[in-house]
Every structure is written in C-alpha cells, then in structure tokens.
Simulated assay, not measured.
Amino acid sequence: MHFRITGLPAEPFAELFTLSDEALWERRAMRVTADRAHAYPCRVSLTDAEPGQSLILLNYEHQPANSPFRSTYAIYIREGEQQFDRMDDVPDQLRRRLLSVRGFDVQGMLRDADVAQGTALEPVIDRLFADEQIAYLHIHMAKPGCYAARVDRA
C-alpha cells in the first residue's frame, strides 16, 4: 500500500525564531543548541540537527482531535527548514529510531498501535492501514515518546 509521510509545515513556527528568549518562554518554548548528533529531530524537515545548530523546543498540539486522545508534547523545530512531504519514502531520522505508530479513525479515536524499528516501518504501516476504519497514523519516537510525523494513505 502506498503511503505519504509529512512533517509539520514551517510557516506556523516562523515567528518563533524572531522572539527573545523571554518571549519564547511565555509561549512555553525555548532556544536550544544541539550538543550531539541524532538527538535533536526537527519535526518540519524530519532531519536531525547537527551539533552546534540552534533549534526551538516547544509544546505542540499534534493531535487536535476533539476526543480523549487529544494530545500535546514537546517537539524541536529548526529555522529555514522545508516540510518533509513524500510518498513511500521513510526519512533517515525515522529509520534510525524505535518508533510507536498509532492509528486513528476520523473521530480521532485510537484504533490500533504498534512499535517497530524504523528499518521495519513499512509492514506496520501496511498492517494498520489494512483496517479501513483507520484514517491516519501518527509516528512517535518510542523512547522519548514525542510526536514525529503523520502518515496518510497515498
């Protein structure tokens, strides 16, 4: 089955990079600097920041459904990134991590979930989308538990 993975759009976050540290803090956000490789995943480009690169850490509502599964969590974003939006292509950022994949119906109710290494993501996507009631998937980094990307049928 064909699928489409998307990162977050960059535009809603653009203003954050112009704010002072105090103004960021008022929005439950902060500027951070990557201090090691593969530890600061940008949710826009679905790439990892290199050591020394600056990011914004913020709380983001990744599951805005009007259901008990409505959810927010911390994410990193990097300035100047383009939104990842590809069919049948799993970015390296996801390939190198243990992932939690969650399938939701159109009402935002969790229907099924699984955990897989990123190198084995496609069979999990296929299995979850075999349930016609599942409208979309959310991928989370399993260890820290934070939202990573959305998957839709293509």
Rank of each mutant, 00 (worst) to 15 (best):
D88S: 13
D114G: 03
R86Q: 13
D105C: 01
E79C: 10
G108F: 07
G108L: 10
L98N: 03
R97N: 12
M109N: 15
L94W: 08
L98M: 08
G108W: 05
M109A: 15
Q117D: 15
V115T: 08
V115I: 09
G80P: 03
Q107A: 09
G80D: 14
L99Y: 09
F84T: 02
D85N: 15
L110P: 02
R95D: 00
Q83N: 05
V106L: 11
R111F: 05
L98Q: 03
M109Y: 15
Q82I: 13
Q83S: 06
Q117F: 12
G103C: 02
A116V: 13
Q83F: 03
D112P: 01
R95E: 13
V115S: 02
R86L: 09
M87L: 12
V106H: 14
R96K: 06
R102M: 04
D112Q: 14
Q83L: 01
V106W: 05
D112S: 12
D105K: 00
R78C: 13
S100Q: 12
V101D: 05
M109I: 09
Q82F: 11
F84R: 08
L94F: 09
D105M: 07
V106M: 13
F104Y: 15
R111D: 03
Q83W: 05
D114R: 07
R111Y: 04
R86G: 03
D89Q: 11
G103N: 03
